[in-house]
Design a protein around this nucleic acid. Structure first.
Lengths: 217, 217
DNA sequence: TGTACATCAGTGAACGCGCGTTCACTGATGTAC
DNA sequence: TGTACATCAGTGAACGCGCGTTCACTGATGTAC
């Protein structure tokens, strides 16, 4: 993707799409310097616009970041949803894809991921933000439900708990090892392998019958 | 703890312990406003000293944060080590204590935890920082080794991997749910319970004989 | 189809502010003899 | 024990800078008739 500052041909007095441009500026700048390392004025400069212009679209810097986070959650939910694909062709491989999609998103979109989880904005600040976040989590939760349903009815663990376990482990791996930035720990294996092994062990621990959820079973 | 700005009696021209005071100031301010939300000048003001004074002790703001992170890792290693207590009286309860100590540290010392994991400073920047970090991780790793040693020799998983799994899960829970600050997700159970359940399931999945590592076995 | 007008989305200059950093300085402390 | 001197750890004033924010303004766009 090559979002230039002026890639949409000649512009006049009006930018035409400043709101979008500011969001892109924020993403660029967060990716470059971290969520705390960019300013409102920076974003305006990046978009090629006067420092007063952003105020037409966002109340302040936090509102801009919140909007970035919201979009991030939406993209995240879409990516997870696509990977999960309703559990096709079989639960286990869908589950595997889901984890990889999670790590992939964190690595490919570190700016979104930062805005979503590390920028210190509360999900309760904005209902739309919260909804988008909930929608992303709902994918994990649905997957956990399908998985739990494979198990014998008695002794089934709560799907919510399973979803939270998977989320925490994946988020932990992503934030400790799975990012492009420096400040990340080195690993003796790929984050994807680490995650896959963790999930396999965990699911075995849940008592999921070996081979359950595999195609043909 | 009540670290006042001038709690050590009357001071003269010399502060006497400015380096320590600056570290405390950083902790206070990080806890208040996040790792990005404090400035060198802020720290000086907090310590009751002119804005030029900190330069006698730290090259710049990053050096101060790195020092805070190093001390954090040292305190962290000590806390984990104490909780682990060489696996006494039995491995499973020591393991349980270890996880709780981890979460407890993240909650009780959010400023340290932020500086260690979220301030964006690379562990490679400073050898002492790296060593302190390694020492903390070594506790987890030792615990994982002892645990793995309980298993039959063939099919033993690598202790390193087990340590990384536990670390990632615990870090994930701590950073998603286990902190005092806002911007954290709500949970239908205590982070400690969530972690304990995750570890139990995981260990079962590793094929650890039920009851192994319990006292009397 | 033209035209008058309202609204929208930018400008650019200005402001007060706090930050990081440097500098010559000075009071306090430690040490050699 | 006293004194001269070196070193240490602060001061305080100053600088240039970029930020956030406001303001009256103006060019561009949309719409009623």
């Amino acid at each position: 993707m090559t979002w230039g500052k002026r890639d949409s041909g000649p512009r006049g007095y009006h930018h035409g799409n400043l709101k979008e441009a500011l969001v892109r500026a924020a993403l660029e700048l967060i990716a470059e310097k971290g969520p705390a390392g960019f300013t409102f004025a920076d974003a305006a400069r990046w978009a090629g616009v006067s420092p007063a212009a952003p105020y037409r679209h966002f109340r302040d810097r936090d509102a801009l970041i919140a909007d970035v986070a919201r979009r991030g959650f939406e993209a995240f939910a879409a990516a997870l949803s696509k990977a999960w694909d309703d559990g096709r062709p079989d639960l286990m491989s869908a589950f595997d894809r889901l984890g990889k999609a999670y790590l992939d998103f964190a690595r490919r979109e570190p700016a979104y991921y930062s805005a979503m989880f590390e920028a210190g904005i509360s999900p309760d600040a904005d209902p739309q933000l919260r909804e988008a976040g909930d929608r992303a989590f709902a994918v994990l939760r649905t997957a956990a439900e399908k998985l739990v349903a494979l198990m014998p009815a008695q002794g089934r663990p709560p799907a919510m708990m399973v979803a939270l376990h998977i989320w925490a482990t994946t988020h932990g791996i992503a934030s400790l090892f799975g990012r492009g930035d420096a400040a990340r720990r080195a690993l003796p294996m790929a984050p994807e392998e680490l995650l896959e092994a963790a999930v396999l062990i965990y699911l075995r621990g849940l008592g999921l019958p070996e081979g359950a959820g595999r195609q043909g079973i």
